[in-house]
Design a protein around this nucleic acid. Structure first.
Lengths: 344, 344
DNA sequence: GTTAGCACTCACACTCATAGAGTGCTAATT
DNA sequence: AATTAGCACTCTATGAGTGTGAGTGCTAAC
């Protein structure tokens, strides 16, 4: 019976790591010379034939070396590879970068994304906080002048969209405050998603005479909130991938870049990640255009609640160990900063 | 004496337009067959030799056809090409797309950028409104809870950054209103750029006891405003360019994509455009990495004041006429919407 | 001033041979 | 029974050599 004994695992590891470095199919001689010097290439060949039969490696064409299959990478990531230990300098660097970022969460995430692509040399993708899942903390209507009202919505993770509402009738400060207070009373603590489903008419009874604001304007505002969640997806460092031989074929490069420009697809990819850190390899991806790619994503949270995710996209021939440790360290810092910045 | 007679101009036009379509050097026979059927190829050859001597066209190598030089394109754009007339459907389409956009200016610009790259099939770049040049209309401090103050800054073109400020000391609503009012009195009408240079200490005398807010927090806030102007540069449709033969060389593609990821560079490019509509061809670009590209940009304004710009980047072999008319139509609509949405 | 004719140039596509890396199998070795 | 040496075989990548065709510049005729 053919089993995945420890030598086979060593060989698989050797193949994967060599392939990750060189992007060239790995031959038996290379392994016997560079990795398992005590064994002859003939022996390695036999083992490789077995590994191929088991589906962990494949041959691009007859009499070429072997390259890892998605299944091979999966085994590697799950139980073969060594954990990469980030050196202190890098950790320090990440910390420092984060400390220097000022501004809102959005900026923080953008910065993190840029940092990630710079450090990994792959592309990074990120979604801004999904406010839908956060709770309303404060809503305030502010009169700017006679006919313009500014609405500001604050959630437990910070500020969200806010917009200027143009009114037909003029409202004085006193009235606006009154309405604000009423809205705060009724709505604070609700998740923004719920605001959408809310029956506004319940509220109107209490503040009569300002129907325009309540019935026409607010629902629109809430709708805009929902919409804005979807478009806040970024990517950075796409150009990095063009250096890799995987994308020396323009056609492939183009296909990949197209995915990055489709915010809907990216959103889909990032949205359904619930684990802390997730590795998706090649065909495991639901998105067809990403079947040649691997994704390493992590979620970031606030108040114990996941509010978004960020990650790295690259070819399946990715430096998993290195990237995982980077993503891990980065999100740790990110979460840290978030909890500090947003602390109530 | 060699002069740029009207036949030479026709030939130059033929060369440029054929080259724009095919990306292949254009030969004398092609021109005599497709464009100037009444003249023989030999004559065309003579004229082409002249055009080359004058610097309007060049030969990639001996005995190849001719391609336009930057100088040739320049002449073409300035005084040869026919103005493209957009068909009604396209105009309608642009109008419709704009009508359906809701949300803030930023979203509007992003949408416009996307629209532009989709319609032109080149890449588009855009900068969000430069608030620095706009005037403060309203500033408001809102207490969210005991230790968090939300500051909102409204300008004459809409909303800008606003941020939650965490305070050491608790401030009640009354106090915040008092400070808000004071700030409004003093600051309304100033351009945001000026806020930075402002001597805060002037203000403190009037509201004693709240030094933390005024001296420590506000300057930081203003600083953040300045910073945020720079990073709001987008690009869309980079992948479009990969379809062009100009970028079949990965190296070139990579170089170009890098520029797009460098927000500082893009900012620089977009910032110094003051004309209504500007065409920059090849080496006319200051940015070295764009010396092979042409740029067609336009500014958008509000209240007669230019607040940002948006444009198209592509190879020098660009469909100038078509793109110019699109950019023109688009910014016209954009300005239109802006003036309606923001009308006070 | 224009055109036909012609020799010349050069990139590109194509073929073909060779080298080299790697395999799988068999037989010998441990 | 597991390992290894040896060998024939396969397939790609590389580079040289060749032919083709588009295009030119020049000259001489119209």
């Amino acid at each position: 019976m053919m089993s995945l004994n420890s030598r086979k695992r060593l060989i698989l590891q050797a193949i994967i790591e060599d392939y990750i470095n060189t992007a060239e199919p790995v031959g038996s001689r290379t392994i016997s010379k560079k990795y398992l010097t005590s064994v002859s290439s003939a022996t390695i060949r036999n083992e490789m034939a077995d590994l191929e039969e088991m589906g962990y490696i494949e041959q691009p064409y007859t009499s070429a070396g072997r390259i890892p299959s998605d299944k091979g990478y999966r085994l590697y990531v799950d139980s073969i590879m060594n954990q990469n230990i980030l050196n202190a300098k890098k950790i320090e660097y990440i910390k420092k970068e984060f400390m220097e970022t000022l501004g809102e969460i959005d900026d923080l995430i953008k910065h993190a994304s840029k940092l990630l692509s710079n450090m990994t040399k792959y592309a990074s993708i990120a979604m801004a906080p999904q406010y839908g899942k956060t709770r309303l903390k404060h809503i305030q209507l502010i009169g700017i002048d006679n006919f313009n009202v500014l609405s500001v919505i604050v959630t437990d993770v910070g500020i969200v969209k806010n917009s200027v509402i143009r009114m037909e009738e003029s409202l004085d400060i006193r009235t606006l405050d009154k309405i604000s207070n009423m809205l705060n009373d009724k709505l604070t603590g609700l998740s923004l998603d719920k605001l959408n489903d809310l029956d506004i008419s319940n509220l109107t009874s209490e503040v009569n005479g300002y129907n325009e604001l309540l019935i026409k304007v607010l629902p629109e505002l809430f709708q805009a909130l929902k919409y804005s969640d979807k478009i806040e997806v970024y990517h950075e460092g796409a150009a990095n991938l063009l250096d890799l031989p995987e994308y020396s074929d323009i056609q492939k490069a183009r296909e990949f870049l197209n995915v990055l420009d489709e915010h809907d697809l990216l959103f889909e990819v990032l949205e359904d990640k619930s684990e802390d850190l997730s590795v998706t390899i090649g065909k495991e991806n639901k998105i067809t255009q990403l079947k040649n790619c691997s994704l390493i994503t992590a979620t970031y949270s606030f108040n114990g609640k996941v509010i978004g995710s960020i990650g790295v996209v690259g070819p399946t021939r990715m430096e998993y160990s290195r990237v995982i440790s980077l993503v891990d360290c980065l999100t740790e810092n990110l979460n840290d900063i978030l909890s500090k910045v947003l602390k109530t």
